[in-house]
Amino acid sequence: MMEAVAIPPFERFYEQHRSEVLRLLRKRLGAERAEDAFQETFLRALRAYGRLEHGAHLRAWVLTIAQNVALDTLRRARPTEELVETPSTDARPAYAELADLTHGLGPKERAAVVLRYGYDLSYEQIAAALSSSPDAARQAASTGIRRIRRRIAS
């Protein structure tokens, strides 16, 4: 069982992570596009914040939201190009730990698996990070796990 970690007032969460989020987004998108993505990242976080079940791993959570906002931005800008997820050094520990296993999964499945099994986040939280529904998050995690199992088995 994980100890319940209190959810900090949003102001504290925002002050603690805004610099790192902006750094990640600038690296992925450049200075100009990073500004809109910054706002979108924290608005998504704010939308889900009232439904969080605990305050653990909020850094990984908000960096995942930022990664997905960056992906959405790139996808909008270059809809025909294949997107390759560039590994982020910011979220290294959990991604690194699960990197071998989750290698080859799509970005959503990969994020869902890492957040669910690496960080023990709820599907509600994962849904916010992926800007989808809890059902879709559950689906992405279970598809991811099935793919991993199949690969290990073969």
């Binding site: 949003f10 805004r18 902006l22 910054f38 706002q39 608005l43 704010l46």
Partner: peptide, 26 residues
Amino acid sequence: MTVSPDLDRRFRDAAVSLDLVDVGFD
């Protein structure tokens, strides 16, 4: 990476206009 006062202000204003804040303070 410092978040500029302008960017910071824009986020805070957007959060309030979208009614996403339980309590605002200053």
